[in-house]
Amino acid sequence: MKNNNAQINKEPKTSSRSLALTALEDFNGFAIYHSGRFVLFAVSFNTVLIVLLIFYFVIQQGLPFFKNFDTIEFFTSKQWYPEADNPKFGALSIIFGSLYVTISALLLAVPAAILAAVFLSEIVSHKIRNYVKPVIELLAAIPSVAYGFFAVLVLAPFLQTHFGLSTGTNALNASLILSIMALPTIISVAEDSITAIGRDLREASYGLGATRFETIFKVVIPAAHSGIIAAIVLGMMRAIGETMVVWMASGNANQIPSPWWDLTQSVRTMTATIAGDMGETSKGSPHYQSLFAIGIVLLAMTFLLNIISEYFLASAGKNSRKK
């Protein structure tokens, strides 16, 4: 025991070290601190770089199309014959198709999602919530190609035989699946924003004798509206950017349904057009460029939606922080 102590005492005591930095230490510290910070920064900044590269390369490949072809025709004509001798690039019905399935999917998904979000945040005990959450997470985890597989091999034959449709792959099929895929996103963001509404608001409402329904619809949801709007916009982003499902389930017919509300007709979306046509093009051909042009439109749309969602998320955050 004594031995040990003796040994330890031989070690130079830390107390003998100076509290002031020597010049070398000072310089080393300075250098290491700043070079380390720079490395961290440089690596982190990659994300920004990647976003810039994505915008640059997609626009660079697609821009020649807008230079060489009629931009107005692209947005207003329904004639899409990219491989013809006299090619026509009218993407109206393709852009319409994307919006068509997205909006019908949202019409299906939003009411159900908000009800579910209310259920999770207002009605159910913590315990049941812990069982329902994984269900939502698993719905979100199913790969989109598996949803597409289900749409083509299970849902399409079902629709065809039970509803007497001429084809099971149509806007209805795609919208149904897209709505399921948008559910988890909308539910979780909406639930967060509803939960963030403070207890005091609710208690005030209940205290005035309101029922749960009245409290939720007249107090909680209006207070959480920013978050709910953000949730819907995020769900929309998910639906409009989805590729595999619409490619496999929408039928890929280049048409605007007539009458316009006839969901049982096939449509074609932007994402599916890119996915389906790219294999048949050669690099630099007008067809190839036109697909990148569609990519630019898609990128612009999602970017816009992203900014909108961020605006609403930010104001939702501010609202809940006020409390």
């Binding site: 830390t14 107390s15 070290r17 100076s18 509290l19 002031a20 930095l21 230490e25 000072d26």
Partner: peptide, 20 residues
């Protein structure tokens, strides 16, 4: 001052300070 050294001095060796 800790042991006569102003700890909020710019050239404080934080590692040594916190060890002591």
């Amino acid at each position: 001052l800790v042991k006569g050294h102003n700890v909020y001095d710019k050239n404080t060796n934080l590692v040594n300070l916190r060890q002591q």
